[in-house]
Design a protein around this nucleic acid. Structure first.
Length: 1104
RNA sequence: GCCCGGAUGGCGAAAUUGGUAAACGUUGCGGUCUCAGAAGCCGUUGAGAAUUGUCUCUUGAGAGUUCGAGUCUCUCUUCGGGCACCA
């Protein structure tokens, strides 16, 4: 049979799915290897040919590693929360979950047809409650942690509280918003609870704070710095402005140094590391406090400032004697206080002017000098000079302290500012040249610098810092450019933040209440009062100890709680024994039950409890009807823990009961703690209406669930897109676990990602946040590696070829309905518009299809050249928004997945960006047919021989065995495709149909073209499905040993001829042979070479 | 402005430690097969001379190191990416 790729590919894809061929083992004697792709956002556009590039490379690698005897984890999933689905929902009213589901189905179909060896049993979706439960859980751990700088790691917040209670703030070296606030233990204890909570928020690794954020009005949300490019939103390209807002942030800055240091330990592309280094932006310098000149009366009254100094950060503290003015950002908090009445008008005008400027204007105006004098002065701490305080927008509020000491002799911006406003310029180094511009060099000796005079840079810096430290007015300091990451988004389609508000302060819900489900809302828009979409949800308030009434919790009631109890304090064997014990003694009360019963009797709690009380179909362990509280003791009445508990809880909630659960173990270990929890719960719950129950009658449904109970508002922001992707590689290790985000055993085995392939566009987003969360999880001993991705490869972007039409613009700057052909656009005022490449052929626009393409163009008119509309062309990112997408479906239909896989690799080096061009794909298809033909005779009948392979056949085979091995190890997939072609050409020329040779070749090629190889593998008589785990053929160098080598003979470095000489000869003998050769003599033309260079096995060069 | 990464035939590219530049594929051209087309197959395809076994030039430009440079060094041009009043 001819090469029937369609049948073959369908057959094997089915086979792999049916047999779970690529399911990774959780325990294995084989070494582990984790190959990960950056999981896709399932967009409505589906996959284009650029997406699978990295997946194909990683799949080849994963398949190769299986052949090499590794237990390979190669999973796939979906980053399924995000803006596009929500934007679509706003337009259509379609629930994002529905669109997302549909898009995932498309992605899955498209991925399946390419024949990837993914272990689909581990699929994750960030928008699934089973998954985001753990994203929320990690958020809670961050909320409950602070960064201890002494231990250089994150530590539980309870440790901090303990410390405050015992020692106050003394002795705490923490990453904190405001390390100037100090208090004693007594002061701490005297604080009200809200005040304490407020203080703790300054330490928590995720916190709520008023901060300056990037606000995108068009998207209705704040954005992180990495989501803003040049003042516009990365997604959608809408303008972004700065705004002060109460926002959730992640204290990633606590990890700045570790994130920087870690880069040296990982095998990542250098440019990517450089980007992260830039983003982190470490600079070493000093902070200096400049005391304010006076706080005494100026004109009318007394000015009281909140500080008596201004703190600046500088990398050139050595230039402090050259300071002639201080500049603070217009947004600086002291501006108002520092402004004197005379200067008030000027300052206010300046602030108004800068406020109007957008981020973009500000960057464009970078060269214009502007500023205003506040009227106030500080004192230079080292020479007591009066230093005027100015404001100017070249100083950024967000960096350092928002204030700089200006040294016009050494800093160009300060220089320009001084020249413009006629401020003095003081030379501070004898070698300084500053007639026309500032001289930032550090050469020479200091002058005009008091005690630093005559010193060189290094000594001067040290001396000045020492002096400042002795005055308590400065110290060496390291500053980072990186800011804390804004974590809230005012959008619907994201993880709800597991937080409610009480007394205006955020509180976590309990772990038992996870996941906090996304509520249903009527439309996906902000509320009339400007609250995020979640503000529309009805009856979506936190009721203590209750799950949201509309959404019963999914998963176990208290997984983390239980996991904590048993895994940390009792060994698993004991836990199992305990369970067995309670099962076998089901009918008798356990000791724990008796202890609990003692406590629950009315004398102790103040309420009447009933034991073994029937509610609907269930017998509850202990029930208080007045309070509507059920106390359950686990490990006694059921064996199917999860399902049974879920169903029970749901039903009991439905009947108006709250459920609190304990295990036997808990009661036995710390009964007091258990009792306290029950008491607390009883206090919180309101008395129920007596009409709901009478005596011992069966309880009827209550309807108005917990009417009158305390209700608290949930946080209305959701988490940003990067939340779910910051830990997903751990979920793949143990994707079904409902007790933990992944089990300790799974994490201990798989550890980290050995090879991660994805785009460099995630350099300062996903990849930085993931490293941050990973380090945090490591600090909590939840994971084992400090860095999550050992080796990373950036696949290049497959660019598209975009086509453009040019819309005529009228005098008022509005677009018309007329389109001008590309050759004529110089004569017209036009604006280019992307046009679908599928309605353009050879750059000629199909006019009718264009009119049908979009309703707005149905009446379009054209200015043609030579009767045709010629489109413009540009290479840019392949994206739906540019209408230049080529999709893999058509190519799979036409050539098959094996061809597509190999062609994508053949295009060029994996890491290089390149525009997509389908032209060459025929060559790869021909190659596979040629490969197929090796196994068949002219009548397309399968035919191979069992004869001994010839030397030439073995040589061709072993060349490719070695080559592919080398190429894959260095991720040079394009060159192996070439080499395969060479090998097949050679074997075709040799008319090779030798079974032994071809079988090895099938194994070698199988990671690239798995379908055709599986088919041939079984045709060769091997059992189906064994190819994926067959051993990679062993390379035997002896087949490649040559007796002779055709030495290139060159004269003065120019090759003249080749001469075959035995490889056994030494350079001396080779030289003699070469000189004796008649042709060589002809080239030498009778001259005697001055020098002869012989490199054995390489070259002979003669100098004449 | 600063920091990375590139530049090789018509096109995608190869050359792994300094050692025969352009492998492999594609496009174009010519041929074969065929009623014809498709699919095969064969030849040819860096440039320029010469015209049967030749010669010269050629890796963005220029210099340098070397017996020998696409590869190493310096200067420049240019394209792509990142950062950017960052104190």
């Amino acid at each position: 049979m001819d090469y029937q790729f369609k049948d073959i590919e369908q057959k094997w894809q089915q086979f792999w799915a049916d047999n779970q061929t690529f399911k990774a083992e959780d325990k294995s004697a084989k070494p582990k290897y984790y190959v990960l792709d950056m999981f896709p956002y399932p967009s409505g556009a589906g996959l284009h040919v650029g997406h699978p590039l990295g997946y194909i490379a990683s799949d080849i690698f994963a398949r190769y590693k299986r052949l090499k005897g590794f237990n390979v984890l190669h999973p796939m999933g979906y980053d399924s929360f995000g803006l596009p689905a929500e934007q679509y929902a706003i337009q259509t009213g379609q629930h994002p979950a529905v669109t997302t589901e549909a898009n995932i189905a498309t992605y899955r179909r498209q991925l399946d047809q390419i024949g990837f060896s993914f272990d689909w049993s581990r699929e994750v979706r960030t928008s699934s409650p089973d998954y985001y439960k753990w994203t929320q859980w990690i958020f809670m751990q961050l909320f409950n942690s602070w960064y201890n700088k002494d231990a250089d790691k994150a530590v539980s917040i309870t440790k901090l509280i303990e410390h405050f209670e015992q020692n106050g703030s003394a002795g705490i070296n923490a990453v904190c918003d405001d390390d100037t606030s100090t208090f004693t233990a007594d002061e701490w204890k005297a604080l009200s609870n809200p005040a304490q909570q407020n203080e703790l928020l300054k330490y928590r690794l995720t916190y709520l704070r008023e901060s300056t954020v990037n606000w995108c009005a068009a998207l209705g949300t704040v954005l992180a710095n990495d989501e803003v490019k040049d003042g516009f939103s990365e997604r959608g390209g809408y303008p972004v402005e700065q705004k002060k807002m109460m926002q959730w942030s992640m204290r990633i800055t606590a990890y700045a140094e570790r994130l920087l240091q870690g880069l040296d330990t990982i095998d990542w592309p250098e440019p990517l590391k450089e980007m992260q280094r830039n983003w982190i932006g470490k600079s070493t310098g000093a902070s200096v406090k400049f005391p304010l000149e006076n706080q005494v009366p100026i004109a009318i009254g007394t000015r009281i400032t909140s500080q008596d100094y201004i703190e600046v950060f500088t990398t050139r503290v050595d230039t402090i004697f050259g300071v002639t003015f201080l500049v603070i950002a217009p947004e600086h908090e002291l501006v108002a206080e520092l402004t004197t009445p005379e200067q008030k008008a000027e300052i206010e005008a300046y602030i108004a002017q800068t406020k109007k400027k957008s981020e973009l204007d500000r960057m464009a105006d970078a060269k214009t000098v502007s500023g205003a004098f506040t009227g106030s002065y500080v004192i230079n701490p080292l020479n007591n000079e009066r230093v005027p305080i100015w404001i100017a927008d070249y100083v950024l509020a967000g960096y350092g302290t928002g204030a700089v000491m200006a040294v016009p002799s050494g800093d160009q911006r300060d220089y320009l500012f001084a020249k413009h406003f006629n401020l003095p310029i003081i030379q501070i180094l004898d070698a300084q040249q500053m007639e026309t511009e500032a001289d930032p060099t550090k050469e020479g000796k200091y002058v005009n610098s008091d005690f630093a005079n005559g010193l060189a840079y290094k000594e001067a810096t040290a001396a000045i810092i020492a002096k400042l430290e002795s005055l308590n007015l400065g110290k060496a300091k390291i500053n980072f450019r990186m800011r804390d990451a804004i974590f809230g988004r005012q959008r619907y389609w994201g993880e709800p933040v597991p937080v409610y508000f009480k007394d205006g302060l955020p509180h976590l819900i309990t772990e038992q209440e996870l996941p906090l489900l996304l509520p249903e809302i009527d439309k996906y828009l902000p509320t009339e009062t400007g609250e995020p979409p979640l503000g529309r949800a009805e009856d979506w308030n936190y009721k203590p100890s209750a799950a949201p009434s509309k959404s019963p919790p999914v998963g176990e009631t208290s997984p983390a709680h239980e996991a904590g109890n048993y895994r940390e304090t009792a060994d698993p064997v004991y836990y199992e024994q305990l369970k067995d014990y309670s099962r076998s003694n089901r009918s008798q009360p356990t000791e724990a039950e008796n202890i609990l019963w003692q406590f629950l009797r009315k004398e102790q709690t103040g309420y009447k409890f009933r034991r073994q009380h029937a509610i609907d179909q269930y017998i509850a362990d202990f029930v208080s009807l007045e309070k509507g509280l059920v106390v359950e003791l686990d490990g006694h009445h059921h064996k199917l823990i999860k399902e049974a508990d879920d169903a029970r809880t749901e039903t009991l909630n439905h009947f108006g009961f709250k459920v609190i659960r304990f295990t036997n173990d808990e009661v036995m270990r710390s009964p007091q703690h258990v009792f306290e929890q029950i008491k607390e719960k009883l206090e919180l719950l309101p008395e129920r209406d007596k009409s709901h129950f009478t005596g011992d009658q069966k309880v009827s449904p209550t309807g108005g669930d917990l009417e009158g109970a305390d209700e608290y508002e949930y946080e209305l922001s959701t988490m940003p897109g990067w939340a779910g992707s910051s830990w997903y590689w751990y979920r793949y290790m143990d994707a079904q676990n409902d007790k933990e985000f992944a089990s300790k055993e799974a994490i201990a085995y798989w550890k980290d990602v050995d090879l991660y392939i994805g785009g460099s566009e995630h350099a300062t987003g996903h990849l930085l946040y993931s490293r941050f969360w990973n380090k945090f999880l490591k600090d909590l001993d939840l994971v084992v590696e400090e860095e999550p991705f050992k080796k990373l490869i950036n696949q290049g972007m497959i660019q598209g070829r975009s086509n453009f039409v040019y819309r005529l613009i009228d005098e008022e700057g509005r677009g018309t309905n007329t389109f001008v052909s590309h050759g004529l656009i110089k004569d017209h005022n036009v604006s280019p518009i992307h046009v679908d490449v599928n309605i353009v052929e050879n750059e000629i626009l199909n006019l009718n299809k264009f009119k049908e393409w979009r309703p707005e163009f149905s009446e379009a008119e054209f200015v043609l050249e030579n009767g045709k509309y010629v489109c413009g062309v540009e290479v840019e990112k392949m994206s739906k928004r540019y209408y230049n997408v080529v999709n893999p479906d058509d190519l799979c239909q036409r050539y098959g997945a094996d061809t597509l896989r190999m062609y994508e690799m053949f295009l060029g080096p994996l890491e290089q960006s390149k525009p997509w061009n389908t032209n060459g794909i025929e060559g790869v298809f021909k190659f596979l047919r040629k490969f197929w033909r090796l196994f068949h005779n002219d009548a397309w009948e399968f035919k191979v021989t069992d004869a001994e392979p010839t030397k030439a056949e073995l040589k061709a085979l072993h060349k490719i065995i070695r080559k592919v091995e080398e190429d894959i190890e260095r991720f040079s997939f394009n060159t192996s495709v070439s080499s395969f072609m060479i090998a097949i050409n050679e074997l075709t020329d040799l008319k090779c149909n030798n079974k032994q040779v071809l079988q090895d070749l099938v194994v070698v090629l199988s990671s690239y073209a798995p379908h055709i190889c599986e088919e041939l593998w079984t045709l060769l008589g091997n059992p189906a499905g064994t190819l994926s785990y067959a051993p990679y053929p062993k390379f035997n160098p002896s087949y490649l040993v040559e007796d002779e080598f055709a030495y290139p003979i060159s004269i003065n470095g120019k090759t003249k001829m080749n001469l075959s000489i035995s490889l056994s000869l030494e350079p001396k003998a080779i030289e003699e042979l070469v000189l004796a050769n008649a042709d060589v003599q002809r080239y030498l033309d009778g001259k005697q070479p001055k020098k002869v260079i012989v490199v054995k096995g390489r070259i002979v060069n003669m100098v004449v």
